[in-house]
């Protein structure tokens, strides 16, 4: 009973904040609502006894990705007016497409073809079971090979990001300490004797 109440509370917060993400005008507020949405879904995951995923979501998405996102949103200073142009013009088409998609989804979901037969529902694991341990076991035994490939993919992403954004050092305006320390006073300072001006 209490669990259900908690679920409905977080689910309501999640749906509300997700709706606000795309309706509020201020992008910073939208990003903050997205944080709230992530946070509520983490709470729902906790209810499902998936504590590792919940913590990872908070740490990775809320802690790292969204903070970065906020920085970008604040720095870019996007002018939203041109983005909103033509909203009214495309609204009928948008509504038609949305309705069509809703009907199609309803047909597919109601058809019963997507009854989940596999995998069987996991039972209650009890407080002693550790999600992290289980995931770790699976990752380093059954799924070792995919895990290693994922590591290689991340490495490629790093290489690509650096290769595509880093300019050669000569185009950077960095000071050259080795040249600075060999500079002598005569090269930099010129003492000029001037006649005193008459008042």
């Amino acid at each position: 009973m209490i669990v259900q109440a908690i679920f409905y509370f977080f689910a309501a917060v999640l749906v509300l904040s997700a709706a606000l993400v795309i309706t509020v005008r201020n992008p910073v507020h939208a990003a903050l609502f997205l944080v709230l949405a992530f946070f509520s879904s983490a709470a729902i995951w906790l209810l499902l006894e998936a504590e590792f995923l919940a913590i990872a979501l908070v740490l990775v998405y809320v802690g790292a990705v969204m903070v970065l996102f906020l920085f970008v949103v604040m720095m870019l200073d996007i002018n939203l007016a041109p983005l909103r142009e033509g909203f009214a013009r495309y609204l009928p088409l948008g509504i038609a497409v949305a309705l069509l998609m809703a009907v199609a989804m309803g047909l597919v979901v109601a058809s019963g073809y997507f009854d989940a037969r596999f995998p069987p529902r996991a039972g209650e694991a009890g407080p002693a079971a550790s999600n992290t341990l289980e995931l770790g076991h699976a990752m380093y035994t059954d799924f070792l090979y995919p895990f290693e490939i994922a590591g290689a993919i991340l490495l490629v992403a790093i290489i690509a990001a650096i290769a595509l954004t880093m300019r050669k050092p000569r185009t950077l305006k960095t000071p050259r300490p080795e040249k600075q320390i060999v500079a002598r006073r005569e090269e930099r300072v010129r003492l000029v004797k001037m006649e005193a001006e008459k008042r």
Binding site: P146, I149, I153, V156, A160
Partner: peptide, 12 residues
């Protein structure tokens, strides 16, 4: 995963 490793390298 193999496809992603290949594709990401090619995009770059």
């Amino acid at each position: 995963l193999g496809l992603e490793l290949l594709s990401l390298s090619l995009y770059a």
